[in-house]
Amino acid sequence: MTPDFVRSMRVPVLVCAALLGLLGGNLLLGQFAFPGAGYFEAALSGVMVLLLLFFSMELIREPPVIRFFGVAGFLWVAIMFVMTLTDYLTR
């Protein structure tokens, strides 16, 4: 392990700690299943996904076009959900 390597691992270690912390938050919420807990759980999971995307997968260091593609997949999943649920929520 060289000093260079240790320095390079600062962000991944922080991300890992943050992910574990957020997971802890989610598990805690899971114990108190109050109405509306799902929204908080979804929000925490969303932050976890963003951390992974932008720091673990280094989207933040990529040129804009790759960043766009990285996000586009989620956008299209959202289209699928919204348009399908338009049907199910209004039946």
Partner: peptide, 20 residues
């Protein structure tokens, strides 16, 4: 990392938000 990411979405969708 993506396999990890998918699990991070699958876990709450199946295990977590449906408990309430």
């Amino acid at each position: 990392h993506f396999i990890d990411l998918v699990w991070i979405i699958v876990f709450p969708t199946l295990y977590l938000v449906n408990r309430g």
